[in-house]
Design a protein around this nucleic acid. Structure first.
Lengths: 235, 235
DNA sequence: AAGTGGTCTAGACCACCGT
DNA sequence: CGGTGGTCTAGACCACTTC
């Protein structure tokens, strides 16, 4: 990390999650934080901005910084990279790899991923299981020139932990398209629902900081079990 | 407005939307913008940050600021206040008021909206029609002490324009929960779909900048017509 | 090496909240 | 009125990209 404002943000996030401010529901003032962390006001404000964007707090001019109501821990967080494991704490998450191999991009995929047709892609299909019940089906494509190696071990734990910590990928931004459809028969069997039942779908296009697409994924959720939470700030 | 960085952000947003940078797909450098707008670097960077958060551009250290691919204009934008009218440009949006009157908060609503039971609320039920076809059913509750007046006229055009520009409400943040369900019979009739067809649902809790809840809404979308887009930035 | 964004500091003044 | 965030400036140095 080595960047002050991120370290401060992460530290404060930990403290918030640990309930350090639950009694007052209020954070220390900017001035106090400046003293505690021995940095300038701008740096504190940048750190705090992270917490605001992550949905933990809100600021009131002239009054202070307050905790936002705890998000019940049963939602999928749209705005984070942290994956199911970190979103659904207090649940048992398991992953079953249904398929994992290298393919070549066809016309459609090459267009979607902005690459040449024939580009090598990892194709992964996974069934996510929450508290012993099928929860979602996720199909992902990774560009092999950016993610040169993947195996079942990595794919069944946290792919993103691997991409960030081991491969040191600089993930920049993502487009997420959400809609719902009638589920197809094969997926219905996997999720233990009836054909034509609803399914919640997230299509995800993920970019590196330099603007390159490196992943495309399609997640299909059990309609009674999945709820997505998104916290938004205006201003 | 009167705040420099927001004015600059709005100005640049307009220019981006007008296609001013489409040829190069690149924005001027920070230095050029500093000169053009005659402000300090921090102010420019704050303005640019707005554009990043609004999903218009991404920055590459050492290289420049680039346009993000145009969001096709057929999505509902989760991260904006701008409502259907501004999201679905190039479409004809109509609104039919199904119900509008003042009620008193029951146990459930008072809990959801964090107010006393019996608090006066505007209850509004609207059918949104896009290109002459039913698109969504929106049920909203507004606290009457914050939104003292509403009528069919206001409710059938842009409520948010009224809240912001006329009532000068300071809207701060929102929690959105998305899921999908089987549609009920009455809604199915309104949306011209079959009972038990899927429905995409957004539950929206909106807060003023001081942390007060002033609106609760529940939108139920035609599953084949509604797609939600959310652009996310990491870092 | 030059160009361009990213981080950080120090200080000034304004706007809003609560007493 | 004092306390606390919000905006803005000016300048320094670092990190990455591009050639």
């Amino acid at each position: 990390m080595a960047v002050k404002y991120k370290e401060i943000a992460d530290c404060l996030e930990r403290e918030i999650r640990d309930g350090k401010f639950d009694k007052t529901k209020k954070l220390p003032t900017e001035e106090e934080l400046m003293k505690n962390f021995e940095v300038s006001r701008n740096t504190i404000r940048k750190a705090i901005n992270q917490l605001v964007n992550r949905g933990y707090i809100y600021q009131v001019q002239g009054s202070g910084m307050f905790l936002r109501e705890k998000s019940v821990s049963d939602y999928i967080n749209l705005g984070s990279l942290r994956g199911l494991t970190k979103d659904l704490t207090s649940k048992i998450i398991e992953t079953k790899i249904l398929d994992l191999h290298v393919i070549e991009a066809d016309e459609v995929k090459s267009k979607q991923m902005r690459c040449e047709a024939g580009t090598k892609l990892y194709y992964i299909k996974r069934l996510r299981i929450v508290d012993k019940e099928p929860f979602s089906i996720e199909i992902s494509y990774f560009k092999k020139d950016i993610v040169p190696y993947l195996n079942e071990d990595i794919a069944s734990s946290s792919i993103y932990r691997y991409l960030i910590e081991d491969l040191k990928l600089n993930i920049g931004f993502a487009d997420k398209v959400i809609n719902c459809e009638k589920i197809d028969e094969a997926s219905a069997r996997l999720l233990h629902v009836n054909p034509d039942d609803p399914a919640l779908i997230i299509e995800n296009t993920v970019f590196l900081t330099n603007g390159t697409i490196f992943e495309l994924s399609n997640s299909l959720f059990h309609y009674q079990k999945a709820k997505i939470l998104n916290r938004i700030n205006f201003k």
